[in-house]
């Protein structure tokens, strides 16, 4: 673990950190302060992000490893929505027959379908479902639930995108790349809808759309939108260059950084994705 890199990453999250940081113990103490700056729901993942970026990379090459990585994420998402639908704290918002409950039920059903599909494809090679997922305070309020949901869905989109090339390089057996791309598009549909649900109830998200503007987390964990590792391959969602071309100024028409960032989603490496998941849930 490279502490200097971690500290450098923390500085990106908290620019004032340098002035206060003298040695490792200070850094660990400051993690506590840092968490207070985020919404209750966002803090655990935000802390994780600093470490993720230091350690993350794409480490998968075999198709089954990619599918098990995806299956783990789908287990997590399925359980997350199942817990939400059963949570007494959310009952007043997710009332039977409401548009909100129907939407969450639809998303949950898709995650269940993805689990079934991936397990079927993996057969005996399928990784076991974790005994439990503990999402901490995620369901304390409707807003924090939606913040977690946004984080999981937007991360999911980046996660599948990050493995497309791996599946291609592995020869696309059984047309698995097409399946992954189809799931990828469903995660993006989910993500956009959850972003609108959250926009309607959470002041932090009041100006967000279904797409990602710059790397704006709007109260969700910054790591979800930040660069992965290496950043050249997995840039932050604020990226406005493609293959060395500055799309703000080199397309014949001038566009803003925000507009360009919205027009492209960015991939994320599997190590960073899993670290985000593990900082949001214990499993």
């Amino acid at each position: 673990m490279n502490l200097f890199k971690i500290i450098a990453d923390l500085e990106k999250v908290d620019p004032e950190m340098t002035a206060r940081l003298t040695h490792r113990r200070s850094a660990l103490t400051l993690l506590g302060d840092l968490s207070k700056k985020f919404a209750l729901a966002a803090a655990p993942i935000a802390i994780g992000s600093a470490f993720n970026k230091a350690m993350g990379q794409n480490t998968l090459s075999a198709v089954n490893d990619v599918l098990n990585f995806a299956l783990t994420l789908e287990y997590l998402e399925e359980d997350f929505y199942a817990q939400a639908l059963a949570a007494p704290t959310l009952a007043a918002n997710l009332t039977t027959g409401s548009a909100a409950r129907n939407a969450i039920q639809t998303i949950k059903n898709h995650e269940t379908a993805h689990v079934t599909l991936l397990k079927g494809a993996l057969g005996t090679a399928a990784v076991a479902r974790p005994a439990s997922f503990n999402f901490g305070t995620a369901f304390a309020t409707y807003a924090s639930f939606l913040t977690f949901a946004q984080a999981f869905e937007d991360t999911g989109v980046r996660a599948y995108k990050g493995q497309a090339g791996t599946l291609k390089t592995a020869g696309n057996p059984n047309n698995v790349l097409q399946t992954a791309l189809q799931i990828h598009s469903v995660e993006a549909r989910h993500a956009a809808h959850v972003r609108y649900m959250r926009r309607a109830v959470d002041p932090l998200a009041a100006s967000q759309y279904g797409w990602v503007t710059n790397a704006e987390a709007n109260g969700a964990p910054a790591a979800v939108y930040n660069a992965g590792n290496p950043a050249t391959t997995f840039p932050a969602e604020s990226n406005f260059t493609q293959a060395a071309l500055d799309l703000r100024t080199q397309l014949g028409t001038t566009y803003t950084a925000a507009e360009v960032s919205e027009a492209f989603d960015e991939a994320l490496d599997n190590t960073t994705v899993l670290a985000i998941a593990r900082s949001a849930a214990t499993f």
Partner: peptide, 15 residues
């Protein structure tokens, strides 16, 4: 490149 565009398309569809 294509996958960077594809998920934005799905976000538009939802919008």
């Amino acid at each position: 490149v294509a996958s960077r565009l594809a998920s934005v398309e799905a976000r538009h569809a939802t919008a």
